[in-house]
Amino acid sequence: MASGSIDQDNRMNPSPRGPSVLRFAAPQNFYPLAGRLAPWFAVTAAVLTLIGLWLAFFVAPVDATQGNVYRVIFIHVPAAWMSMFIYLVMAFWSAVGLVMNTRLSFVMSQALAPTGAMFCFVALWTGALWGRPTWGAYWVWDARLTSQLLLLFLYFGFIALTRAIEDPRRGDRAGAIIALVGAVNVPVIYFSVKWWNTLHQGASVSLTKAPSMASTMLMGMLVLAFASWAYTLAVTLWRVRPMILERERHTEWVGAVLDREGGRK
């Protein structure tokens, strides 16, 4: 993707000599840190997923009204949470990038986007499969489902824009602007869709999900939410690493990293 001619200022700031935590905002410090942390997050995600699945299938009781179908909730709700949360984090990093001019923040927001879109898709897919037996249709134009769909489109727009612009500097900033514009619009979209929905919704569709939630159900959901959190961290850090290498390819430290990688094969 990112191609461009070489120029000296094609580097991420700030300088590597800073005190405290800010030191890790420098790519040559962040790169190895990301490499060290990612496996731990991945292991945490895997363990939490196993615990969560065990709670979901073997501990949580059958729902009195919905039967076993409700077990979809254990991935549906965490995925929906994550998809919204990741968009907010993306917008946060975009704002940080625009204000502080730190290129690593832009890279972070771009690395988060595909995972956010993935969770968005999972939420829609599981929602559809859950909807068929409970509401009798794979899709209803419910406020939550519809806003989720629009959120997926926002993710697509962000990803498409940052990929289409060749110059990474321009792509970073353009993506940041659209992420912020999207974040401002997410609540507007949600409330407008909700308003529209209350006017149009037929009486046949009632959307009470899992009325009285047993505490074991809540536990399972929370554990899987933490699992998807850890997963997001792991996969984002893994995705950030090659992006940093690509952008910092003119520096000596990337040269050293590449020599190590090349020698390993």
């Binding site: 727009g157 602007i177 407008s192």
Partner: peptide, 22 residues
């Protein structure tokens, strides 16, 4: 944002149509 970007027209639609919904 899409000035001079390849495939700009389609990209523009993808970017702003969700924002037009409200």
């Amino acid at each position: 944002l899409t000035l001079g970007v390849r495939g700009g027209g389609m990209l523009l639609a993808l970017l702003i149509l969700p924002l037009f919904v409200p």
